[in-house]
Simulated assay, not measured.
Amino acid sequence: MSPTARLTKKGQATKERIVSTAADLIFEHGVAGTSIEDVRKAASVSGSQMAHYFQDKRHLVQEVVDYQADLVLGVQRSPRLETFSDLRRWAAINVEQQRERNCEGGCRFGSLAGELVEADRDTRRQLARGFDRWESVLRDGLQLMYDRGDLRPEADPDKLAMTLLAALQGGTLLTQTMRSTDPLEAVLDSVIEYVESFAADPASVARA
């Protein structure tokens, strides 16, 4: 299907249902363990509909990458990260999310990246853009705190944002592997303590 082709509302809804279904199946079974036929059956669409919206499995997976990035970013934007208290709530939300899944599956976007990062150059770049978008959510909040004077001048919002994201990804992988939220809780607590060490007013952290 041409990327510039316009879809009717019904067509767009059908395409979105297929992508959403594919995302859930891939999260559960992996890219290699999910076939076009699996998606077709689960989404209750015909083979001709699948062929109409997606040239092949690769193009469907590309849509899933963007879908998962959007889904994860929706969660990461709530709460807005504008205070030290927000960072603690952000950590608690990510830990609770893993607890609700019984520590299975890992990060929806991170797990997909782990499976696809060496697939081809275009896919790697697409995954990198997803992580860039994620990092920017963290960076924007830290930059606001910096501009407001909550963080000392030597704090670097860019590096702090990357550190938070790397800690979350690594902690989530260990939590998935060990089937315990202990690694994720430990690393997020430590990395947020590191961010808090740049507080212009240490008392503000104590009150958070």
Rank of each mutant, 00 (worst) to 15 (best):
A5Q: 14
R6I: 02
T8K: 09
E16L: 05
E16M: 05
T21R: 11
A22R: 03
A22W: 00
L25P: 00
E28M: 10
E28I: 04
V31K: 06
G33T: 04
R40K: 15
A42P: 00
A42M: 05
A43K: 03
S46K: 03
M50P: 08
M50K: 10
H52A: 11
F54H: 06
F54D: 06
F54K: 05
Q62L: 08
Q62A: 12
E63H: 15
D66T: 12
Q68E: 15
L71E: 11
Q76V: 08
Q76A: 09
S78K: 13
P79T: 09
A92R: 07
R99G: 06
E100G: 02
R101P: 04
C103A: 09
C103N: 08
G114I: 05
L116G: 02
A119R: 07
D120T: 09
A128H: 08
R129P: 05
D132W: 03
D132T: 05
S136K: 11
S136Q: 14
L138Y: 02
R139M: 11
L142H: 02
L144R: 08
L144F: 04
D147F: 07
D150T: 06
L151S: 03
P153R: 09
E154C: 01
D156Q: 13
L160V: 03
A167S: 15
L168F: 07
G170A: 12
G171Y: 01
D182R: 13
D182A: 14
V187L: 05
V191W: 03
E193Q: 14
V195Y: 06
A203P: 04
V205E: 08
A206I: 04
R207E: 15
